[in-house]
C-alpha cells in the first residue's frame, strides 16, 4: 500500500475532529509533524509543555460478527501461529475464547439466556480497534508502540518492549496482552495488511474493513463517539 495515500484516505470526518483538537494543543510548527505522522507517529512537545504523539490513521481494522461466528477459535491460532510460532488463546490478538462460554459480561445468574455457549450461543469476539489515539501507545513508557509504516496498525516493537504491561492496563478493550512466556506485549499488527485471522475464519465472520467503515462499525456512526481509546462503542 502506498503510505502517502493511505493517510489522507483515512482522514474521516471524526478522526479529523480529533486531529483538530490536537492541532489546538499543538500550535505552531505542526505541519511538519503531521506530515511525518503519515509514515508512523511522531511525538513532540506542545506549547504548554505536554508530550503529545501524532498517529497516522490505520489503514483499517478487523471487525468480528457475533451472528456468524461459530466459536471455533481458528482465528486465535491463525494469529499466534503466524506471529508467535505457537498456539495460544491468551495472547491472541483477536479475543474469542474469553467470551466464548459466558459472553463479555461473564457468569451471571441468568447465564442460560445470556451471551455465550452456555447461554444463547452468541459468540462475541473482540478485535483491536487500531484507535486513532491508541491508549496502548500513549501509555507505553518506552515508545515501543507505533503506527506501522505500511498498514498504520499500532504495532509493538519487541526490541523496545520491556513487558511492563502499561499497554495492557491502558487498553479499554483488553486487547494488548503481555505474553507471560516472552514478557513482550502482543497486540494486533494486521499481519502486514493481510490478517491471518480473517483468512482463516471458516464462516467469514471476521473481516478487515478500510478505516472509515471499520471506525463506523467499531465505534458507531451517531453522536460524538470518536475512534479514540475509551470512546464508547
Amino acid at each position: 500500500m502506498d503510505t502517502t495515500k493511505s493517510a489522507p484516505e483515512g482522514e474521516s470526518k471524526r478522526s479529523t475532529s480529533s486531529r483538530r483538537e490536537f492541532l489546538r494543543l499543538a500550535g505552531a510548527g505542526l505541519a511538519g509533524a503531521f506530515a511525518a505522522a503519515a509514515f508512523g507517529c511522531v511525538s513532540f512537545d506542545t506549547r504548554d509543555g505536554k508530550k503529545v504523539k501524532v498517529w497516522a490513521t490505520s489503514s483499517g481494522a478487523i471487525v468480528h460478527d457475533p451472528s456468524r461466528c461459530v466459536g471455533c477459535r481458528r482465528c486465535e491460532t491463525a494469529c499466534t501461529v503466524r506471529n508467535d510460532g505457537k498456539g495460544s488463546s491468551y495472547i491472541s490478538r483477536i479475543k474469542v475464547s474469553r467470551n466464548l462460554n459466558y459472553g463479555v459480561a461473564g457468569v451471571s445468574a441468568a447465564y442460560a439466556r445470556a451471551d455465550g455457549q452456555l447461554g444463547n450461543f452468541r459468540v462475541v469476539g473482540e478485535t483491536c480497534r487500531q484507535c486513532s489515539h491508541p491508549a496502548c501507545g500513549e501509555a507505553c513508557p518506552v515508545g515501543a508502540i507505533s503506527a506501522d509504516k505500511t498498514t498504520g496498525a499500532r504495532v509493538v516493537d519487541a526490541r523496545k518492549c520491556v513487558g511492563c504491561g502499561a499497554c495492557q492496563r491502558a487498553c479499554p478493550w483488553g486487547i494488548a496482552t503481555v505474553d507471560p512466556e516472552t514478557e513482550k506485549s502482543t497486540k494486533c499488527l494486521l499481519c502486514g495488511g493481510d490478517p491471518n485471522c480473517v483468512k482463516n475464519c471458516p464462516t467469514g465472520a471476521i473481516k478487515f474493513y478500510p478505516w472509515a467503515e471499520a471506525e463506523a462499525l467499531l465505534f458507531g456512526t451517531g453522536g460524538t463517539a470518536d475512534a479514540v481509546s475509551g470512546a464508547t462503542a
Binding site: 491463525a78 508467535d84 505457537k86 495460544s88 491468551y90
Partner: peptide, 19 residues
C-alpha cells in the same frame, strides 16, 4: 485456565502451508 501456549517446532509458514 491457561495463559500459556503449545509451541511448534517448524517455521510458522511451514505449518500454515500444510494447514
Amino acid at each position: 485456565k491457561g495463559t500459556g501456549s503449545v509451541k511448534i517446532a517448524a517455521k510458522p509458514e511451514e505449518l500454515m502451508a500444510l494447514d
